[in-house]
Design a binder for these strands. Structure first.
Lengths: 344, 344
DNA sequence: CGCCAGCAGGCATACGTATGCGCATATTAT
DNA sequence: ATAATATGCGCATACGTATGCCTGCTGGCG
């Protein structure tokens, strides 16, 4: 029937003590209905007593299910390695929480775009699926995604949800968010609204935000002025540089919608240097609501994405995919957070 | 000898193709010296060809080594769940990097102090050891640590390295850092230096920073004035409140050393509200060098901890412990980053 | 009173790898 | 030439769990 309890307790040890077979222990602990209630409770008690915990490796090996997901984060190689996008942290928080709630383990890794992580995780049964988070050039990224799809790897990514999106994608309603920002600024009487951020297909999220802004303006009969759009990646200096460019163009503007808070913060610095006041001369709206956004002077009006919903949706979508019941791609609404950079 | 290649390739498939036995494949791929070079290279080629990757679960099960470490982060329950300490992100970055370099997987989890994570990870063979990160009340934390030690769990924690420290600990030289801040302020001619932050044994890191400050002052023959120390946990409002308390005491001060950047930022807001200028009336030094520190007006002078070294040391110490070759506890030096909050 | 259904649990086995041990063949020493 | 050593590899097995299949028993029904 088994051996007496040894060192680290196994399901055999429990079986021995409970006077049942090992499979019964396994079934009992997994809550199988084919174990009587009495037996199950006896087994559970003994397990608790011995401080038993199921061996993850054996369990995963046998069931071919690791109950683990891998969170892969990557971005364009950054000069300063320690400077990680703060947005990521919020996402991480909500993802870990959702994993915890669903009893999943979370493996995490920062990746360079050049690595071949797409092979490692699922094939080695480290994880049942991947969550991909990344800011960066989407076109570079696309090849990797296609490889993953071809390989049959389970994954979900965070990003712009569009028609040409590769693989299951969860993202904010960037167009709607852009409209939100535009409407807010227009409501304040601003008419010459500049956009700081890439607006091309390499950065679809930013582009969507710009589209939303243009939508809002169009609704008021205002045509977008190309002189009021300046490319910028998401970094403080990029924002600073972009704002200087904008100022240098001598095209009048009374508002800025920045594609990220970091850009906005850099822009505010440039405005200050140019002697322009916020919000007097220029109202400014950022994006992301990073912690620093409420600490600037004046505090930054910004768009807050639904981080909590995002983590949940990413995990749920991934699990659904792993369990072979596909879920439609989903878009999360964003919210405007009004602070003094656009107000009195 | 084996079966022909099936679906997901296994070491048997490779063995079959290479005309050797499965154990030889295993040895070859692990670089065992008892496989001839020719055979090994043939096997490696086939493995690459088939896109083979070792099954993590089987491997870990057999070898009883998961090559995975778990990073557990916990702090006092915070009202706003999404508001995670930014310090953590930098640490996370350096830890993931070091794990990557050593071929370790990283499991991550945010924990409430009430959970019984201390049982789950090592017993279930999810991870070979734990890295514990936490800001919060150390005395609450101590019981958990003792349990871990008693249980024989491998772990390292980040925190104050002192005589009464429980378990292997890696941390910054907080006393030295406090001295650094003190010397800097004294060098600017400031004599009435306030400290904002807990100074009791519940928060030994903060306490150490205060000790360092007092050391520096003592070296100049200045005795610490209890009126110039105000408790504050690490949050912006706490800093704000503490600075208001300080101001309300009517004890003159010309400098503040804040136990964290968030406290410093809150304090700067309170100073501004009270009509005090920085650095004119009050010079201020923070701690952590969070991203927001360079974005305040004026930018904040602060202490930068050696994050890169920290991650490395944490991982290395943990691995050493797992491999049963203990390492001495280690202290990392910190650096002063001078910005305008203490300068012209 | 016999038969079929359903419940509770045992038996055997599979998951894929790593490793102690033993056995040839090749190499060197005596 | 023979014995001793090293080299390269196969055999058997263990790691701890989960699950398909089968069995014995209980009870309801005809």
């Amino acid at each position: 029937m088994g051996r007496p309890p040894g060192n680290k307790p196994t399901s055999f040890d429990i079986a021995y003590l409970a006077g049942v077979s090992q499979p019964t222990v396994s079934r009992a602990l997994r809550g199988s209905r084919s174990v009587s209630r009495a037996t199950r409770e006896r087994i559970e008690a003994i397990a608790r007593d011995l401080n038993y915990s199921v061996d993850k490796n054996a369990s995963s090996l046998r069931s071919q299910r690791s109950n683990t997901i891998a969170l892969l984060f990557f971005e364009d190689p950054t000069p300063d390695e320690s400077n990680i996008n703060p947005f990521f942290l919020a996402m991480l928080g909500s993802i870990t929480r959702q994993c915890g709630a669903r009893g999943l383990d979370l493996l995490i890794s920062f990746q360079k775009m050049e690595d071949d992580w797409h092979v490692r995780y699922q094939d080695s049964h480290r994880a049942d699926g991947l969550i991909l988070l990344g800011y960066g050039d989407y076109t570079l990224y696309q090849r990797r995604l296609t490889e993953l799809v071809d390989h049959g790897t389970h994954f979900v990514r965070w990003g712009s949800v569009g028609a040409d999106t590769i693989g299951p994608t969860v993202g904010s309603d960037n167009v709607g968010a852009g409209r939100l920002a535009g409407d807010h600024l227009l409501g304040l009487g601003r008419r010459r609204i500049a956009f700081l951020g890439q607006a091309d297909e390499h950065y679809p999220e930013f582009a969507d935000r710009y589209v939303g802004l243009c939508d809002a303006m169009a609704a008021q009969g205002i045509a977008p002025d190309p002189a009021l759009q300046v490319d910028a990646l998401t970094a403080e200096d990029a924002g600073h540089a972009a704002a200087r460019t904008l100022i240098g163009r001598n095209a009048p503007f009374d508002a800025i919608f920045a594609a990220s808070d970091l850009i906005a913060i850099g822009a505010m610095r440039a405005l200050a240097e140019a002697g322009l006041t916020v919000p007097g001369d220029v109202a400014i709206v950022g994006f992301d609501d990073i912690p620093a956004a409420s600490l600037t002077t004046p505090p930054l009006t910004t768009i807050m994405q639904d981080m909590k919903g995002a983590g949940q949706l990413l995990v749920d979508t991934l699990v659904a995919q792993v369990e072979d019941r596909p879920l439609p791609p989903t878009i999360l609404p964003a919210r405007l957070v009004v602070r003094r950079s656009t107000g009195g």
